[in-house]
Design a protein around this nucleic acid. Sequence first.
RNA 1: GCCCCGGUGGUGGAAUUGGUAGACACGCAGGACUUAAAAUCCUGUGACCCGCAACGGUCGUAACGGUUCAACUCCGUUCCGGGGCACCA
Length: 818
Amino acid sequence: MEYDFRKIEKEWQKKWKESNVYKVSNDSPKPKYYVLDMFPYPSGAGLHVGHPLGYIASDIYARYKRLKGFNVLHPMGYDAFGLPAEQYAIDHGIHPAVSTDANIKTFRKQLDNIGFCFDWDREVRTSDPKYYKWTQWIFLQLFNSFYNRSTNKAENISILMVAFEKEGNVKYTMPNAQFSITSFSAAEWRGFDEKTKQDILMQYRLAYCGIGEVNWCEALGTVLANDEVINGVSERGGYPVVKKKLRQWYLRITEYADRLLEGLERVDFSEAMKEMQSNWIGKSSGAEMDFEVKSEKSKVKILRVYTTRPDTIFGVDFMVIAPELDIIHDIESAEQANAVEEYITYVKSRSDRERQAEKKITGVFTGAYAINPFDGREIPIWISEYVLAGYGTGAIMAVPCGDDRDFKFAKHFNIPITNIIGKHFNGEDANPTKDAVLENSGFINGMVMKDAIEVVINKIEELGIGVRKINYRMRDAAFSRQRYWGEPFPIQWKNGTAYSLDEKELPLELPHVESYKPGPDGEGPLANIPEWVAKELETNTMPGYAGSSWYFLRYMDPLNDKTFCDRKVSDYWNQVDLYIGGTEHAVGHLLYSRMWTKALYDLGHIGHDEPYKKLVNQGMITGSSRFVYRVFLTAGGIKKGQVFVSKNHYENLLLLKDLPIEFANYINKYIPGKYTELRENSEVNITPLHVDVNIVDGVLLDIEAFKTKFPEDQVHFILEDEGTYICGSEVEKMSKSKFNTVNPDDLVAKYGADTFRMYEMFLGPVEQSKPWDTKGIEGVHRFLKKLWRLFYDDIKGKVWNEEKATEAEWKVLHRTIK
RNA sequence: GCCCCGGUGGUGGAAUUGGUAGACACGCAGGACUUAAAAUCCUGUGACCCGCAACGGUCGUAACGGUUCAACUCCGUUCCGGGGCACCA
């Protein structure tokens, strides 16, 4: 009785299905355990062997926990809204809903093949109106909330309105300092018209609309979030991204910066992951500090800067303002005005991309001076593109002996450098140390720098010339896309004011469109639909991360049509105990879903404020590409023949002078022309070509299989001495164009799901990235056959019985397990 | 440039309050079975040395140095690989 995996697996999969064995109840006396995979985007390409790695790992763990007596929630679904489906629709005229549905069917079939123990009754699709009804509902929760900084949580906006009626906004600092009205009394509030009131409330909402500089990608026709832009180009497709001012929806994630940071201490994520997130949040503490300005116009009296190093105050040799700041025109001298104007024009001409790619040292003197409040020194005020308008106050105090950028700037423009750290500064490099003893530093002379920081902050607060201040690098997250294939906003505009739709009107369904072309003025395709526009409905749609920010909650209670997830149910399942997925979502999905969880927690909809207890990041499975080497003679050569040379010959060919005689003979066989000619003319073109890895065994090419792809008479081979063809190899990303993808279906068909699953796990640690190599799968398959034979002999059949095991047998068993 | 993680046989990896390095498995080699091959079973398998053999010896955890009776494990320096950040003051 041999190991007939096809029969075995088919039989069991059928049994599982019939008996609903993986159906999970929300009502169980067993302790719960929640194992979650990052749900896939159902792309048209289907699964390759890299995708199931994490699913297999989580599946094994889910089974383990189930056997250990836990009630295990292990669901699967689809992140079905997104750009590629829409792009495909534009190119092929197929509605995204149709192509997405077809893709999901393929995915499901492939997943079933591998024999996962998902509870498919809990499947979710983010593009399903029954699902996005609740995405819209949660959006409205955010829209109708503000962040109360004194209670440190999200609260309903009505609380704010009551407070405004009573006492204005004294107790509630407006998060947006740029807004035209930042403080008002109760009387003033009552005097405002409806539109002004709504505009003010918008400045507080956790989901808000505003005009902002956004990352606009012309090629994709949409706005992208910061984490979707890599080095000035779009993450998807690598298209140029420019800054553009547009009306946008945002999530006020900055209000959660501290809690997102603090929460990291309570979760089990890898250090690398935590670091990525905390870098992204980028908390820094220091002080804002005012400098008196001395300028011709004397319009502006104060320049406010942000610094993390108040201890270096006596080393300030110049100030720098970001070129975008309006204050520049109030302080520039008549003499410098032209130069300043010229410089601002130059900066405007530079794209973000250029600014990041070539970090040139540029800048111009404004003609104005700042006064150091501690020693009265006059400090020249410059403007330069290296200071960013969006961070801190957009102005800095420059300390060239301690900061590399300031140092280079000072050197470039010949600004004298004050040394406040003695021998720690060598005059050739800045030294950012905090451990030096201060010199030339007035009242903090002789102090160690890190101790002086506190002393100086206290002093400036005492003198009333500044405040202690914490800054974050993280910005509010752009939350709208000028696209079709996403959740519509449940928002209706009336006289330029956004109002939420009533809950009863949800879901606001995505209407059918004929064209996916963008609407006018940078608006999305929904702006082309007259009925939509007539109702003044929002024409933007939500970004891809909207649906994925809360899907782990919907799995708990997927069919509920009264609420997104019953509170009793979410209290039972609570946090995801084990979450498995790739690192690419470190600062996107993971941060957003953590924020949504915290907001839902604040508003009392769920009972926990961190969604994932433990996160494991599976490594990427890279492809191992194989190459054949094609030789063409470009002059007087063969007309239609192609010669494929094996690897060793290829390497020799690259070193023409080392070409062995035997090889010259080969060439004579297939290529007209003498070896010497070849050498002198070098009119030979050798091209490595990707060859389908599925017809290569290790590095040995299946020559017969290869020949089927080319007409026999046109293909010649120059083989190794043993008569084999050795391919070249290289590790690359797995992709169809590189012919290095391996389809799990083929492997499952050949070896069975158990072999395939075991082999994926055998490849190495889940967290590690590693190249796929089918070579070792035979060994795992043999191992499983051996295991099978422990129970069934090929001839004798069943070799086990139900007798009680002897002590010796128990020993063997446990030794084996160990 | 800065930050984080890692480096043990041909391969995946065992072994750390410092105490027999390489468990287990894959692969590979030799043998058995077979007309032959596959499958299967048995044996061997870090490198080197001595010996008919049993036994034994030397080296060995990226490299070098240090602490220790004792180092894969602790410390220092360097090299290599992977990942992240990159004008955030």
